[in-house]
């Protein structure tokens, strides 16, 4: 479907629906965790389309997330490939991003990729103050794991190790 758009950049933009745009944007991978998309991660919040101007609303996972600029650039490139020239990328902080927005399919993908997905609702404050109860090693599924550091390779992750298979792994923190 996407290739059709790319070959017809002169196509009438009025034929392009909001759904088409969403579908195209939902292919964009997160720059730091490329196995999941910005849509699955909950960064992509809204698309406004009036057949001339396209406004994309995104929200950062963490305020200082350095990937936001790359994500914005990726969105612009994707929209241009659809023939859209007037693009506004809006960054919003409210409602604040939460790990609750990560879809179940995305959580499965994260685990396969070697990142333990957030296990709980962020409403459960216990996750903030102690070890998540059902956290398991993404390599061998053992629950015999230990936190090395609350701060991992990116702002959204903590560093753990598995005491059975001895492999270190990242855990996607609940916020």
């Amino acid at each position: 479907m996407n290739s059709v758009f790319r070959n017809n950049t002169t196509m009438n933009l009025t034929q392009l629906s909001k759904e088409d745009i969403l579908l195209a944007l939902s292919e964009i991978p997160d720059p730091e965790i490329p196995v999941i998309t910005i849509e699955e991660l909950g960064i992509l919040r809204d698309v406004k389309w009036d057949c001339i101007t396209c406004t994309i609303v995104i929200t950062p996972t963490y305020t200082g997330c350095p990937a936001m600029k790359v994500i914005e650039d990726d969105i612009r490139i994707k929209l241009k490939s659809l023939g859209i020239e007037n693009i506004i990328v809006e960054l919003v902080y409210s409602p604040a991003w939460t790990t609750d927005w990560i879809s179940d399919t995305a959580k499965e993908k994260l685990e396969k990729y070697g990142i333990a997905p957030p296990e709980h609702s962020s409403v459960d404050k216990g996750t903030l103050l102690g070890k998540p109860r059902d956290l398991r090693c993404p390599h061998c599924s053992s629950k015999n794991v230990q936190m090395i550091s609350q701060f991992g390779s990116t702002a959204c992750k903590a560093l753990y190790r598995c005491l059975d298979c001895r492999e270190p792994f990242d855990y996607f923190k609940c916020i």
Binding site: T63, G64, S149, Q150
Partner: peptide, 20 residues
């Protein structure tokens, strides 16, 4: 190493907060 990473992660949060 873990503390180095932790402090820089926190630094990033602060700079992000300052930016907004």
């Amino acid at each position: 190493l873990e503390e180095d990473i932790a402090l820089i992660n926190i630094a990033l949060d602060f700079v992000g907060n300052a930016t907004s």
